[in-house]
Design a binder for these strands. Sequence first.
DNA 1: CATTTAACTTTACACTGTTAAGTATACCAC
DNA 2: GTGGTATACTTAACAGTGTAAAGTTAAATG
Lengths: 201, 201
Amino acid sequence: MGTKERRAREKEQLRQQILSAARELFVNEGYENVSMRKIANKIEYSPTTIYLHFKDKADLLDSVCQETLLSLLNTLEQLKRDTSNPVETLRKSGRVYVAFGLKYPQDYKLTFVIRPQFQKGLGLQEGSIGEKVFNYLRAMVSECIQQKIFRQMDVETTGQVLWSAVHGVTMLLIDFPDFPWTEKDTLINTVIDTTIEGLKA
Amino acid sequence: MGTKERRAREKEQLRQQILSAARELFVNEGYENVSMRKIANKIEYSPTTIYLHFKDKADLLDSVCQETLLSLLNTLEQLKRDTSNPVETLRKSGRVYVAFGLKYPQDYKLTFVIRPQFQKGLGLQEGSIGEKVFNYLRAMVSECIQQKIFRQMDVETTGQVLWSAVHGVTMLLIDFPDFPWTEKDTLINTVIDTTIEGLKA
DNA sequence: CATTTAACTTTACACTGTTAAGTATACCAC
DNA sequence: GTGGTATACTTAACAGTGTAAAGTTAAATG
């Protein structure tokens, strides 16, 4: 019987092929400079085949970004959390977050800048990977507040402040590579440490 | 004789016409969704006329962004600086910066995200408006450090940390309007105050 | 073997940024 | 005023875009 399963497997395989071709092209040439035809060429199918797996180009982008978020989540979760020192964990997580953004700058921008432009109304929906990432942050922040290391402030606000800081420095370093930045790691660490210091009780 | 001058004036006028048509379209429909033909239609000239005034679409974008930066600089400089309380001035400037970004979100993104993507290698060149904006920040930071309110840290790094913070929160609020942010002004103020607090001696 | 279904391709449409060539008009020296 | 030239602008064209509709092929089912 297993033909149906085989077919489904093959279909999934092609989907994955399209996805990784798209990611590679998006990352190397920029979303706007990648045409459906280019992707099709790379996987040696006709352009319209892509539409059998993805609604349109934006949907393709969205799927690529989901993968990116998952990868970010995994990277963060690999960091083993020392509950006795939540601030240090937070610090490390911040560094990992920025490092991720700088290691895959194009993927980062696709996910956090380009995608919101094309996919209106994504507000961190229930069960999404994006929500899981933010939950990770929430948990750490919560710990810092409960242990009274941080000011007794709203968990949400505190988390959002931290996100703003790491997102800001990541975006600037990506978008203005020629700006006369002070030493990159110094800047990143200072951003994270300053924000954490400012949040302390 | 003045015909030459009149001609030059007319030419400049058309240039301005193109610029404001382009800005309006870029802002309302997004850079990528605006074609040279659309701009041309709006000003009732043929598409190729635009090329008599701007090298290409990216150059047009660049000119639009220069205007935006100038507007930002003016907005910042209107704030009268109370040298006896540089921290309060810095706080206000931060709020003004974010408010500017949120008032003209598309212009902000064009300038700080889209343009760097198309104009590689803009590293805050000598005498540019971007440099003037950053100089404004430098001056305020310098004051805070000299008066020993801030930690004795590198002026550059300190300024870059502040820029990261305000840029981060601005970008997030623009790109994820549906995210469950805490009250917007609270978030903005908390970001600014937290960063400043973290920088204090 | 016949028929249905799924996978994939061909063709086509209306659009894109930009270049090259063409045209008309306003200016200048005589 | 007339001839020539420079300026402003347009027309036409090229190679490319995202994607819908229709057509084709091959495999799975009854």
